Computed example of a mutant assay.
Amino acid sequence: MTPRPKAAWSRYRNSIGDRSGMFGALARAWAPERALYPGSYVDLSPSTVIPAVTYVDTDRRAEAFFGDVDLVRAELHGRTVPGAGTEVEFLAADYTTALAVPDQGFDLLISLYAGPVWENCRRYLKPGGLLIANASHGDASLAALDPTLRLEAAVTHRGETYLLDTDRLDRYLVPKNPDGNRPELIRAAGRGVGYTRPAFAYVFAYAPAGNPGAAPPTGG
């Protein structure tokens, strides 16, 4: 029997598209140095523009991919900007349990199609850091209701071209059904609420009590 090919980012891109452009736009605006990506599977795109990324997943295929250092290096070859991809770490772990990473150790937390990342991993984000989340599993919808988070940009895209919309942000995160826009209902449903003007993802700045200021965007 021919063995199944090892999971790889190059093949995964064929199904989800290349998100490098999204992280490139984010990096040009805020220049994060360290990112945490729970539920990453083998999506290596953040490492094309961010120096240090810690990926987290329970999938054994992801563990095998990131464990093959030569394969990861080959997948990033020719696709990184200067200084990016210098630290690629992987944790075979469930992000809903305590992770072996420092509290407030990251300036970017990534939540894409992975469930309640924000509520389980907020402790790892520095005050003034960024959360990028989509509404698929409800994370962006929960983030929108969190008073410690401030919407900084909406991510729109056409194909693999991503843009950060920082104008008139009050147009975004407006629920079609306000009655359903409650945390307990979002958690129970496991999906985001419908918005009158949806976006692919949303970028929030984290400003917990006692740390009210977060750096404003520098581009977009």
Rank of each mutant, 00 (worst) to 15 (best):
W118I: 05
T96M: 15
T80G: 10
Y195K: 02
E89C: 12
A214N: 14
R19G: 06
N177Q: 09
A144Y: 06
A188P: 03
A92H: 13
T97V: 02
S40A: 09
T156P: 13
A154L: 06
L108V: 01
N14S: 09
R122S: 10
A144L: 07
D146L: 01
V193C: 09
D18W: 03
H157W: 02
A205M: 02
E119Q: 08
A29Q: 08
G67V: 01
T48M: 11
A114W: 04
R158G: 14
A144T: 13
C121F: 06
G83Y: 12
N177F: 08
V72E: 11
F200G: 03
D107W: 01
P38G: 08
R197C: 08
S136H: 13
V117S: 00
R191C: 13
G17A: 14
N181V: 02
V81D: 01
D59Y: 08
E33D: 10
A62N: 11
G21K: 03
D146P: 07
N134T: 09
L130Q: 03
R11Y: 04
Y55E: 03
R150I: 06
P183D: 10
Y12W: 10
T58G: 10
T86R: 09
I110S: 04
G39F: 03
D59A: 04
S15V: 11
M22Y: 12
A133V: 15
V53Q: 02
R168F: 09
T58M: 08
V203D: 00
R28C: 15
R171P: 08
A133M: 07
A35W: 00
T2W: 01
G78R: 07
T2M: 11
L76N: 08
R28K: 14
A140P: 06
Y172K: 06
L26D: 09
A98H: 05
V174N: 12
V193P: 11
N177K: 12
S40D: 15
W118V: 06
K126M: 15
L164C: 05
P175T: 04
Y37R: 10
L99N: 03
T86N: 04
A154G: 01
P183N: 11
P3Y: 02
D179R: 10
T96C: 08
V174Q: 07
T86S: 12
P147I: 13
R171N: 09
A205C: 06
T166S: 04
W118N: 14
D167S: 11
R150E: 11
F200I: 08
D103E: 14
W118G: 00
P116A: 02
L151D: 02
P116R: 05
N211L: 12
A199F: 01
R19Y: 06
A214H: 05
Y55W: 13
V155D: 02
Q104S: 10
F204G: 01
R158P: 05
A209S: 05
P216C: 00
S141Y: 04
S111I: 00
P51N: 09
L164S: 08
E152P: 07
T80D: 04
N120S: 14
I186D: 00
L71E: 11
D59P: 07
F200Y: 15
P183L: 09
R79D: 03
D103R: 07
H157I: 11
P46G: 13
T97G: 07
R182C: 00
G105Y: 00
R191T: 03
